[in-house]
Nucleic acid binder design. Structure first.
Lengths: 212, 212
DNA sequence: TGTTTCATAAGTAATATCACCCATTTTAGT
DNA sequence: ACTAAAATGGGTGATATTACTTATGAAACA
């Protein structure tokens, strides 16, 4: 039996969902809520396995609500049901730990129950085209900056890699059998070329360049 | 017309591929190579659109060869044809900029030509199950350490976030209206709690914890 | 109403990084 | 062989971070 809670600020949507899930034998509704506050207090009473969540609630944005929910209930499977189709936004929600994302525009009863069962069983539910798109972004985005970034020499790249591995300049010097001063020079040149101000910036740009 | 080069150290595999692609009207073979060195010199003569590449070559590992190739020919679409099915390995190759990954075990003529056309047109080719797996890993891995990591206080998290934004301690102090010394204390406590040795470690763990 | 945790911050020092200057040698490209 | 670029590393400071200890008022909580 999958315990499901529903949160949406449109009563009609909740009605529709209740109706659709009414005769599904392995899903039981533990509660319906129409804003963030009532959801949070409701979950203290009874905790579902899966939460079907609309992101546009009157009192709290989904981007804030989801981290709060997952901090309190790390095992809660959150399945987003939203009208927003922007892929960076979807990625953000998934990275915050949601287990699935349904688009209101093309979710019918079959898709809905399938998605609920999928996330209940520890899976990820995303529409095929969204999956495709997310994967594409994650893989492809990195490369683009490569061409824009200034030419870094082989040695500089090497040093940068070791900085990323959390070595200090001295350790890098020892590992490469060069002087500490040389490493400092390379590091300084990296800061200049990559237009960074400190280690944090260096690491950010290194990741953007795709070196891991 | 898609110009394709093939690199594999098994003559039989090359024969098979040539045979399979023989009567495909929109694909023309510009060259076949059986090791890294001959590939690199061959590409200087004639540059294909797509390179079908086996990763286990006698003279050079794929992990080394691919970056070299992409540095010299950034527009080359590399399609891996390999027997290795390890997903971290596949992810590594894709992150290095390969456009597709075919498994020798289940690649037939239809799959092959489809993949070649896909990457030629700027797409990513991965078998459905691999796509699934990669996406799953990318999204899910982050969360797991959250529970293991020690409890960081609200303020510490705040400081960590600003460190990630490349602010110095002084700038963080100014932004939060607290003393430089306080920021230093928070930072020191973060290093202790997260078991990091420097900024780079702090940033790595912060990312693992999912805060961006 | 205690008790613990948090946020604050100073003291003291050792290291590490950043910001430039410069010069020499080695390597790579034509 | 010539030239440009890369790798090497010293000099000199200024800043920033790391490594601890101690301490106090505030807030959370039981």
């Amino acid at each position: 039996m999958i315990k499901l809670a529903i949160t949406d600020d449109h009563p009609l949507v909740i009605d529709g969902l209740l109706n659709a899930l009414n005769d599904v034998p392995d899903i039981v509704i533990t509660g319906t809520y129409n804003n963030g506050a009532s959801l949070l207090s409701g979950l203290q009473e009874i905790l579902p396995d899966v939460l079907l969540l609309d992101l546009q609630l009157p009192d709290k944005k989904g981007t804030e609500l989801v981290p709060i929910l997952l901090q309190q209930y790390p095992h809660l499977h959150i399945l987003i049901l939203s009208g927003i189709e922007s892929s960076p936004y979807i990625r953000e929600m998934m990275q915050k730990g949601c287990k699935g994302y349904l688009l209101k525009s093309n979710t019918d009863k079959v898709v809905l129950t399938g998605a609920i069962r999928e996330v209940y069983n520890g899976g990820i539910y995303l529409e095929a085209s969204l999956k495709e798109q997310l994967l594409h972004e994650m893989l492809i985005v990195k490369r683009k900056i490569d061409k824009l970034s200034p030419r870094i020499t082989r040695r500089e790249r090497e040093v940068l890699n070791l900085i990323m591995k959390e070595l200090t300049n001295q350790e890098i010097a020892d590992k490469l059998f060069i002087s500490l001063r040389t490493v400092e020079t390379h590091r300084y040149n990296l800061l200049q070329k990559l237009d960074a101000r400190n280690t944090a910036g260096l690491l950010r740009i290194a990741r953007e360049m795709g070196l891991e």
